[in-house]
Amino acid sequence: MTELEPSPQDRPRKIIHVDMDAFYASVEQRDNPELRGKPVAVGGSEARGVVAAASYEARKFGVHSAMPSVTARRKCPDLIFVRPRFDVYKSISLQIRAIFAEYTTLIEPLSLDEAYLDVTDNLKGMKIATDIALEIRAKIKEATGLNASAGISYNKFLAKMASDLNKPNGQAVITPRNGPTFVEALPVKKFHGVGPATAEKMHRLGIETGADLKARSLDFLIDNFGKSGPYFYGIARGIDERQVKPDRVRKSVGAEDTFREDIFAYDLAREGIQPLIEKVWRYCDANGITAKTVTLKVKYSDFNQITRSRTVATSFSSISEIEDAVELLLGAIFPTTKGIRLLGVTLSSLDKCHGLEHSQLALFF
């Protein structure tokens, strides 16, 4: 190494975030020509069903994933509901995962339709990450007929943000030079990792943009956001030191939602929590993970919070088993005199499924 060459520790990382475009819906439109160009929602059309994915034609009407099916139908009367075919989606994911593996061993799956890749030192010796992303997207299109978008940057946070900039079927790069400026202009509600409840709290504190977040001290952020404070302090400056971790094992997987109006009735709470159940189940099913514990989180209008858990001897094997457990936990807190402003569902005591089928699932993204 000459004096002019940076050490490996000093080199900016090259991270790619690949995100399939409307993955489930695009697969259905690919396989059924009659659906092409029409608003499509993958998911149940029953009263308790939710949208798992929406085509771009449906999104123009405001339909999006995790939306109750009855709401989606109201927004788009011509919406076509299609039952999900997870075996097909997983098979396609194997194809995509194989393409990633041609370029790097550092692949971190996030779900069926997205993953991080660290291509700093890639298997093909390519120097420009944008070229790698172009090749990967072209190979995905050739192998599957589907479009993928990509974000390229020097850390995971900015790569994730970049992948949304030119969707669908596009890519964008955020360089070390323009990363901090990009973050300063970004509304905090669009930050990956800042959910609706956190964004609402930031707004109450006068934090609307990345520049506002950057102006707050580390102590202030820790006092108000706890262990997330250092993360927010870093990303406000375009800094994210998290590594791309292949085959990461999570301790838990959860989802929560803050409601626009407080909930007092069980039926409304049950309807509101269904999308959360489906979200955590999809993650486990896609990644071949089982869970033995389900936890219900309830935050009331006075900001008091409770959790209730149920643990089973053998792992939950279907979404209906999780629904039954959540219904027992939820029913126990009714009737209530205090309005419910937030509900959450978390699965824990996670473990990889055993057997050939689930050893393959670990490769999906």
Rank of each mutant, 00 (worst) to 15 (best):
G344A: 06
K14D: 02
T105E: 15
D19M: 04
T336Q: 01
L112Q: 03
S65C: 03
A101S: 10
G44H: 04
L165R: 11
H358G: 08
A236I: 01
E28S: 05
F157Y: 07
V82D: 03
D10G: 03
F86H: 12
E46T: 13
R248V: 08
S252W: 15
D262M: 08
N169H: 09
H203E: 01
P12G: 03
D351Y: 13
R74P: 00
A313F: 14
D31R: 14
E135W: 11
P39M: 15
N178T: 15
D10I: 02
R97N: 08
P8T: 00
I96V: 11
V244E: 06
K227H: 14
V173E: 10
C284Y: 09
L276C: 00
D164I: 05
R48H: 07
A325P: 00
F182G: 00
N304P: 12
R11P: 10
L356V: 10
D240R: 05
P180V: 01
K190C: 05
L268T: 00
E321P: 00
D223I: 02
G254D: 06
R74V: 04
V244M: 09
E208I: 09
D247E: 12
Y103V: 06
Y24C: 02
E261R: 06
S217R: 12
E46P: 00
K160W: 14
R204Q: 12
I107M: 11
D247Y: 14
I263A: 01
S55R: 10
G193S: 11
D31N: 11
R237I: 06
F157E: 01
I289H: 00
A211N: 10
R282Y: 06
T130L: 08
Y283W: 13
G339R: 02
Y24F: 15
R308A: 03
L361I: 00
L79G: 03
A129L: 08
D257S: 08
T120H: 07
I80F: 14
G355T: 04
G210S: 09
M202Y: 12
G49A: 11
I16H: 12
L347G: 00
